[in-house]
Design a binder for these strands. Structure first.
Length: 488
RNA sequence: CGGGGCGUAGCGCAGCCCGGUUAGCGCACCUGGUUUGGGACCAGGGGGUCGGAGGUUCGAAUCCUCUCGCCCCGACCA
């Protein structure tokens, strides 16, 4: 029935908001632009986090934690960096409140004004590089491979739950290296980790590429990105990994002595993914009936609904399956609610995107079978109780694969090539999606295209074939196609 | 910051134009009963500063002024 969810066709943004609300992922908060991540939504993030953390550690990184506040002066040490973030910083100017003399509550105590304002971190390059200065003296201190899980604040004009909130959760890796090549290799390594995570865990296909100068991270020499395609034909930048060159080392005077006792500036990378991924996950798979979650990240992979309710004669069997599923490493939820009827529960768990539902009633008990429903295709089938655990395990894999294939198909259907600007505009208007096209390589052209079409260069794909062509806007020569799209 | 919309019970809304007893409906909630294989039904019940302030009036959810907040679309951005 999908009660209360706006259809995608009717209003895509409303649909997105409905899913978040009805599936219990997040709420708006008392603070404009900030959301409350509810337990079910946070569980998805925790699963993402656990997997990413494992991948980072597997590739030699360790976690640390740096302060929330950054002295204002730090931010301005790297010129491009401050320019990129200055307009969206929350600033702490005082540290104390006092009772309002007129009795109307509390006011800022003017005598508590800070000598130097503190910035709530929009990203931590500056405070971290200020710290690295003390940590790095010799080539023996390198590489330094550190990640932190943190919250950051960017005072954006327009926010959307998960996709862009004033405060968001993320991880930010900050590494230091002795050579340029090593730093580039590091940023590429993480770029690959992100792509692998997106595709294998989120079942969200991505295009890997580098950013144009205009879209590059403030302070970076090169930004690598993974770009995903949402169901409304808009692209989502899902993760970025930056090669920072020696920009921050120079700004914070971080030098090391090499094995020939010569001083050199350190080479750096930084990389991050955020709670935005949850938004990407929602928009990649979900449908008009609610959330659809890939099994690998679903808080619960199987839900068992006793039909018509948790009768004692059913629960013995159900408790046994619950334990067996747990033992098999499957996250399972048993609905022991006495009051709600099965139909209600079915709709509820579809809304919440649980990949597999087991329905078990007296009839099933008699026949030694279980009604197995999969969320991705909505198919239902009767499966013998014997071997059900193995069946569930295999079905979870199948669902994971199916979601990825489905998303890949959608992307192929929304991946076009344009030779002329008219063609480009027509595709954008008719179906959106990614459009590959020749571009003359200049910022001016990119900005003009953006102005006329709202589309930007999502990335210069790493695997693009080299071919002679003409820029769709200016006709100037181009050596390869780049990928355009409207984006979030 | 521009353009549009909206603030009435936890949620979704009606009532407002055209002022008039005790502010209403659906869902949710509580109690009891009957039900239960795709969002059950009956009966009873609880819950409201009508976003806030000021004004007009015998009387304001309703009219006027100011104000606060939220949502959508855009500019900005992960």
């Amino acid at each position: 029935m999908a009660k209360e969810i706006t259809s995608r066709e009717e209003n895509y943004s409303q649909w997105y908001n409905d899913i978040i609300k009805k599936a219990g992922l997040a709420d708006n908060s008392a603070v404009r632009g900030c959301m409350v991540i509810k337990p079910y939504g946070f569980a998805i993030w925790e699963n993402m986090k656990a997997e990413l953390d494992r991948m980072f550690k597997e590739t030699g990184h360790v976690n640390a934690y740096f302060p929330l506040f950054i002295p204002k002066s730090f931010l301005s040490k790297e010129a491009d960096h401050v320019e990129g973030f200055a307009k969206e910083c929350a600033v702490v100017t005082h540290h104390r409140l006092m009772n309002n003399p007129d009795g109307s509550g509390v006011v800022v105590d003017p005598s508590s004004k800070l000598e130097e304002e503190l910035i709530v971190r929009p990203t931590s390059e500056t405070i971290i590089w200020n710290t690295y200065k003390d940590w790095i003296k010799s080539y023996r201190d390198l590489p330094l491979l550190i990640n932190q899980w943190a919250n950051v604040v960017r005072w954006e004009m327009r926010t959307r739950p998960f996709l862009r909130t004033t405060e968001f959760l993320w991880q930010e890796g900050h590494t230091a290296h002795a050579t340029k090549d090593e730093a580039i290799a590091e940023s590429r390594l993480i770029h690959d980790v992100y792509a692998k995570f997106a595709e294998e865990y989120m079942a969200m296909p991505v295009i890997q590429g580098s950013k144009s100068e205009n879209e590059r991270f403030a302070g970076a020499v090169e930004t690598y990105t993974i770009e995903a395609l949402m169901q409304d034909g808009k692209a989502l930048q899902a993760g970025t990994s930056h090669f920072l060159g020696q920009n921050f080392a120079k700004a914070f005077d971080v030098k090391f002595s090499n094995d020939k006792n010569t001083e050199e500036h350190v080479w750096a990378t930084s990389w991050g993914v955020s709670t935005r991924l949850v938004g990407g996950l929602i928009m990649t798979h979900s449908d008009d009936e609610g959330l659809v979650l890939p099994p690998k990240l679903a808080p619960y992979q199987v839900v068992i609904v006793p039909i018509p309710k948790p009768l004692p004669e059913l629960m013995e069997t159900i408790d046994k399956f619950e334990q067996e599923l747990k033992d098999a490493g499957i996250r399972v939820l048993v609905d022991r609610d006495e009051k709600k009827r099965p139909g209600f529960k079915f709709a509820e768990y579809e809304m919440k995107g649980i990949p597999i539902r087991f329905g078990i009633g007296p009839r099933d008990l008699e026949k030694g079978q279980i009604e197995v429903a999969r969320r991705d295709t909505k198919e239902k089938s009767a499966v013998a109780m014997e071997g059900i655990i193995a069946h569930a395990k295999q079905l979870l894999e199948e669902i994971q694969n199916n979601l990825f294939e489905r998303a890949k198909n959608f992307r192929s259907e929304h991946y076009s090539s344009a030779e002329t600007f008219d063609e480009f505009k027509e595709i954008l208007e008719k179906k959106g999606g990614f459009i590959e096209a020749h571009w003359d390589g200049t910022v001016e052209t990119e900005l003009k295209i953006k102005e006329q079409t709202k589309a930007t260069i999502r990335c210069i794909p790493l695997d693009a074939k080299q071919e002679e062509g003409k820029c769709i806007l200016t006709g100037a020569p181009s050596k390869q196609k780049v990928i355009f799209a409207k984006s979030y």
